[in-house]
């Protein structure tokens, strides 16, 4: 599914902004996630408690290049992350705009090409643009991560028709909705559309009860996946009686 890794849980969970390390630990467990995202920062700002969580949770680590605005920054950060976490996985973010946190697709493709050539397994944070997606695949990515909405905005699937088109355009490619999810219903909708997983952080970390919200997201994503596999009924423009007409009594 994702570079040879088969996951039972299709929720990928970010680890930032939780009220405490203990709540983060419990949220990871409650969500059922098997992949957590982490970052790199200057030594001295983190804590040993976080390192312990990374070791004990048993999850795969997906390091990110959050905050990088250039190809060089992203490539160097990825190289440092690979050594530190002992994984070829990298969630590649090259931010193009400080306000929208929109990816810079040109720098993204260039960084992806460099990192894939160095043996990284790249998870690129991108938009629903089909041509950018094709370029990323040509660069060597085997996964695409289109945004639902701007990072941390909680707006959900802002361009649902565009995402539907993307899903249809890349039938065999694992697609992960990354960013912008605010509610379990939105994550479920993404799964019903046939996306392979959802990556989120703020919606859980900033909930009143992050542990309960993590559990809710895990359930919604599992339900959405099951619904997709079950095959949703086609939408109709008009009503159609579900109770059979045949055998109806004449009482008038």
């Amino acid at each position: 599914m994702f570079y040879g890794a088969e996951l039972n849980c299709r929720l990928m969970l970010g680890t930032a902004q939780y009220p405490s390390p203990q709540i983060l630990r419990e949220a990871i467990a409650a969500s059922g996630t098997e992949v957590i995202t982490v970052s790199l920062r200057r030594e001295g700002y983190g804590g040993s408690a976080f390192r312990e969580i990374l070791h004990e949770c048993g999850c795969r680590i997906l390091p990110n290049t959050a905050g990088c605005h250039t190809v060089r920054e992203a490539v160097t950060t990825a190289q440092m992350a690979r050594e530190l976490f002992g994984t070829n996985w990298i969630k590649l973010e090259v931010i193009g705009h400080a306000d929208t946190l929109q990816p810079d697709p040109f720098a993204l493709v260039e960084a992806a090409r460099i990192l894939c050539a160095e043996g990284f397994q790249v998870f690129p944070y991108t938009t629903e643009d089909l041509i950018v997606g094709e370029r990323l695949l040509e660069a060597g990515c085997h996964v695409l991560m289109p945004w639902g909405a701007p990072i941390g905005s909680g707006q959900g699937l802002r361009n649902i028709e565009g995402l539907r088109t993307m899903r249809a355009h890349f039938p065999g490619v694992p697609l992960v909705i990354d960013a912008g999810i605010g509610a379990p219903s939105q994550a479920m909708a993404a799964m019903e559309l046939g996306f392979d997983a959802v990556l989120l952080n703020t919606a859980v970390a900033k909930a009143l009860d992050p542990v309960a919200m993590a559990r809710s997201f895990g359930q919604a994503i599992a339900a959405g996946r099951a619904a997709f596999q079950a095959g949703l009924m086609p939408r109709r423009d008009f009503a159609e009686a579900s109770t059979p007409i045949f055998g109806r009594a004449v009482l008038a």
Partner: peptide, 25 residues
């Protein structure tokens, strides 16, 4: 890389970054 730190000489004015794991999304 870790293996190259011993052989990496410092010069006046260089910029060194020392990073560790941190919470991220």
């Amino acid at each position: 890389p870790r293996s190259a730190r011993d052989a990496t000489a410092l010069e006046d004015g260089v910029k060194v970054e020392v990073l560790s794991p941190m919470q991220g999304g």
